[in-house]
Write a protein that binds this DNA or RNA. Structure first.
Lengths: 167, 167
DNA sequence: TCTAACTTTCAAAAATTATTGAAAGTTTAA
DNA sequence: TTAAACTTTCAATAATTTTTGAAAGTTAGA
């Protein structure tokens, strides 16, 4: 396999993975492109490389910045904005965890808590509903705690936990 | 809040969460409904409760069965099929992990391995590409290993790991 | 076998989501 | 200021995904 092929394969795969994670394809592809590019890239360069429109490029770059995984770079003496993605994968994972926690886990925990508070009758159906949503809530809280720990942790902690898990 | 409201809120939230996880809304909602229902439900009952068509109900029930998180139940003396979702949340998490590993992590690991094997020149661009994809590959393998351990583990192991993480 | 009960399929329609490109907006430097 | 360089917006369009419902398929028992 030669470089161009590998590159396009990787960009493609990263886009597909994105889709499975509620991030759209273009966003995943832009991220992939920035990951493998040592230099920061301009909107133009991204449009060119991925063959997408200006509007599309702009929106998805903003999206990546919102996720906190792409940064603006200003080059001295240039008006154009350039963009880079951090190359530290553990840091990337941490940032994605942080965002998913905020965007998905928190709202679900909120609903699970709310529906716990129904205080009507003692029909069996209701007891069961409470039991299930309580279990979900408990589990979610455990996961949330673990994620929080991961997000705040340093590199060392992460590998230590992996070690502990494995033995 | 009264029961009907809580129920619909929960079903709604589970559907939304589903969307963020590459599972569609109806599929999430059906799963929610089965989770909180003690009795197994028929296609008819699901259609009725969620106000969806027969085709939609059928397809998404099949989807849930494919995910391994919903099971068919035959009631003695009845021709109709009924469906239930397991009520053990840890087991649910394990099954979802198993499937996501197979559907998402494995394909990505495969691509990352493949693109590693490019052996062209020693241009800086290529070196960098290899470095990034190697890091991604290493990280992915770690996560994959942890998931594998989780999937094979028993309840006890899981809580032990959480304990170890927290301290 | 035949029929009624039930499940599956699938083409068409609807809904949702992504993409385009041109116009509007903003900023910088002369 | 003004104009050029650049970024953002957004209505229109395209692409994709979901949903429908009716027809086809299957199965069990009379």
């Amino acid at each position: 396999m030669h470089y161009e092929e590998a590159k396009s394969k990787f960009i493609q795969a990263w886009g597909t993975l994105g889709s499975a994670w509620g991030i759209n394809k273009a966003m995943g592809q832009i991220h992939a492109l920035l990951l493998i590019s040592e230099e920061a890239l301009s909107t133009e360069e991204i449009m060119e490389e991925l063959q997408i429109s200006r509007g599309n490029a702009n929106m998805n770059i903003r999206g990546l910045i919102d996720w906190g995984i792409v940064n603006k770079v200003y080059k001295p003496g240039e008006r154009k904005e350039y963009f880079t993605a951090g190359k530290d994968i553990l840091e990337l994972a941490r940032q994605v965890s942080r965002e998913r926690r905020r965007r998905e886990i928190e709202p679900v925990m909120k609903v699970l808590d709310e529906v716990q508070s129904i205080s009507e009758g003692e029909k069996n159906e209701i007891k069961h509903f409470k039991a299930v949503t309580k279990d979900l809530g408990d589990f979610t809280k455990q996961v949330d705690g673990a994620m929080d720990k991961f997000i705040r942790s340093d590199k060392n902690w992460f590998f230590q936990v992996l070690m502990k898990m494995m033995r």
